[in-house]
Design a binder for these strands. Structure first.
Lengths: 148, 148
DNA sequence: TATTGTTATACTCTATAACTATA
DNA sequence: TATAGTTATAGAGTATAACAATA
């Protein structure tokens, strides 16, 4: 079989680097996700926090941050924004930590966000079979968790 | 076969999202690459530009930017830095664009950078077989190029 | 009129440090 | 002494707009 020549394209000295393709794909996927969530008034970090609170009602702010790799200092304004917009509620569990839960509005928004994210993933990864997608998830997950 | 229960870990509502794992892995890989290049006084973007110029001597600044997804406005200070440190040279090709080449010092640095990046990739992706690595490269590359 | 390169600038993300109050 | 949350702030990366010089 004859291979296709890229006669006009410049040689790409990064083509053999997995990390490079990981980075390029991550950038375009994040851009698409940001656009998909924008109509809901959410950024990717907002949505990930809502999902984490929905799945773990009563979780504390710092535990959300630990799970998502977001520093405490950066969680504070993020949570303040979701509180201020009425999407989450919190009650003290001891004097320093607060249990987080979705409000009714937050739960409704979370539903719409999950739908938007699902459509986003189907759009961006449509060229991968279900099996290829699952295999890639397990490989990527194992790789980042071993350095976490 | 009995599956392992994650009795103490919080449910992870993002576990099924390929984009999430892509992002988390990209972050840790970039952090490792940054650390690997730091002793050479290079950042990942610097190294990618050096590699592109080495593989395409005479390439213009804007074509480097197009190939790497870096805006012209952001290429200017990057190139100025490499010029100022004597790693690249440039000569006018017409009145507005310049052909870029590595200097001798730049070529030597490039060699060391390639070695550092190679060791970085071997370290970070050591748990993937050669075949799995190649398959993942071709899948990731196809995915980001279809949105480029 | 379009392109190359430059400057200035703004915005987002991420990181550190310092502080409080609680345990 | 360690932890939860907050604030302030600094740095990197990335984005837009405007400009000069040239094609």
């Amino acid at each position: 079989m004859k291979t296709v020549e890229k006669s006009d394209a410049a040689p790409d000295p990064l083509a053999h680097l997995l990390g490079y393709h990981l980075r390029r794909l991550s950038v375009v996927v994040m851009a698409d996700l940001t656009e998909a969530l924008c109509p809901l008034g959410l950024k990717p970090a907002d949505a990930s926090v809502l999902f984490m609170i929905e799945a773990n009602p009563g979780i504390t702010q710092s535990d959300v941050g630990k799970a998502l790799g977001i520093l405490r200092a950066n969680m504070a304004p993020l949570i303040a924004g979701l509180l201020g917009r009425g999407f989450i509620e919190r009650e003290p569990v001891d004097g320093r930590s607060h249990a987080l839960r979705l409000s009714a509005a937050g739960a409704a928004l979370c539903l719409r966000a999950k739908s938007a994210v699902g459509r986003h993933e189907d759009r961006v990864f449509s060229s991968l079979s279900k099996g290829a997608r699952a295999r890639m998830i397990s490989q990527l997950r194992a790789l980042w968790m071993e350095r976490q």
